[in-house]
């Protein structure tokens, strides 16, 4: 049964991807990408990667699609016909694809428990991490502790993206009288529903943030969901009002703060005589130390991701407003 679901989902993915090649309507292309992303999230669930599915759904189908739509609003929604030959790209792809298929021939068969991937490093994560790190969610243990340095790097990547978007688009605050009509004033139903929904979305974000040790979730997903709540607010009630709730200047402080919070755990463990990010040194009981460390660094991740995602949205949205005025 699981195999059948898998086959059907993969076939749907293939159809979606192929359709993107030939469509000229970019709005449809972006929507298809959202669908592609959701379908892959489903695949991830069927392959037991619930954390990944959660992230893919919130990032790929959520944030990425919103940003792409925001870009389309500024750049136009149809692709022009172009006459240049597509033969060379096709040849490159065929050669690359052939190399990959050649590579698959010696790949270990799908799903076998004695594949090399499952033998060397992974068993320790599965067998020891509940004792060494003390969390039931192994993905969180590996992410935040064993490979915590990767996750610090990942948080810095998010921060670097914010630097890029800020330098490219900036976030300008217009003076009050210049403020154009924005938000969806006439849509009473939307406004009421949004108002009802937003507290629950924020609450859910907090749940995901602090429950990530036990179930799927963690700082990254929580940050994205919390940002989504404010994005919804900004869409319905307009940017100026959203700026009053959380201003771009404040976000500009919040984003580096999250990274620093994460790094400070590492520095503190150095002062306690351990190596960088060694949570065992944070408390007298190593497992308790692991727990403290993970909670703090997940919080750092959550804060940075929230601040960055929201300021990226602000940057795109203020561009759109500016072009509306013109």
């Amino acid at each position: 049964m699981a195999v059948l679901i898998d086959l059907v989902l993969l076939a749907m993915l293939a159809i979606t991807a192929l359709r993107v090649i030939f469509l000229k309507d970019l709005f449809a292309v972006v929507m298809l990408f959202g669908i592609y992303s959701f379908l892959s999230a489903l695949i991830f669930v069927s392959l037991d990667a619930v954390d990944v599915a959660f992230t893919e759904a919130s990032v790929g189908a959520g944030i990425s699609t919103v940003l792409m739509l925001g870009t389309l609003a500024l750049t136009g929604r149809t692709e022009k016909e172009n006459k240049h030959s597509s033969l060379l790209p096709f040849l490159v792809v065929v050669v690359t694809g052939a190399a990959l298929v050649y590579g698959t021939l010696d790949m270990p068969p799908f799903g076998h428990p004695d594949n090399p991937v499952h033998e060397h490093v992974a068993p320790r994560y599965i067998e020891q991490s509940p004792k060494e790190v003390g969390l039931p969610n192994m993905v969180t243990s590996v992410l935040a502790s064993y490979r915590g340095f990767d996750t610090l790097g990942e948080t810095v990547v998010v921060f670097a993206a914010a630097i890029g978007v800020m330098s490219l688009l900036g976030i300008r605050r217009r003076s009050e009288d210049e403020t154009p009509e924005s938000g969806l004033k006439e849509h009473q139903v939307l406004r009421v529903v949004a108002k009802l929904l937003i507290p629950f979305v924020v609450l859910f974000a907090l749940y995901v943030q602090f429950h990530g040790d036990f179930g799927p979730g963690g700082g990254f997903q929580a940050g994205v969901i919390a940002a989504a709540a404010f994005i919804l607010y900004a869409l319905v009630y307009g940017l100026p009002l959203a700026f009053q709730v959380i201003g771009p200047k404040f976000l500009q402080l919040l984003a580096p703060f999250g990274v620093l919070l994460y790094a400070s755990v590492g520095l503190y463990s150095m002062f306690k005589g351990g190596l960088f990010l060694d949570y065992n040194t944070l408390a007298s009981d190593p497992v308790a130390g692991q727990h403290y460390g993970i909670i703090i660094i997940e919080l750092g991740v959550g804060i940075t991701v929230f601040a960055v995602m929201l300021s990226i949205f602000y940057a795109f949205a203020s561009q759109a407003e500016r072009s509306n005025v013109q």
Partner: peptide
């Protein structure tokens, strides 16, 4: 259990992907 390590790697990679996408789209604007 399925292997948690690829999941961790891909969580990181997804984040890297959205970061690149955001910068790329800003460049387009």
């Amino acid at each position: 259990y399925s292997n948690p390590l690829p999941h961790v790697l891909i969580l990181t990679a997804i984040v890297v992907g959205v970061a690149t996408t955001a910068v790329g789209l800003s460049l387009i604007v």
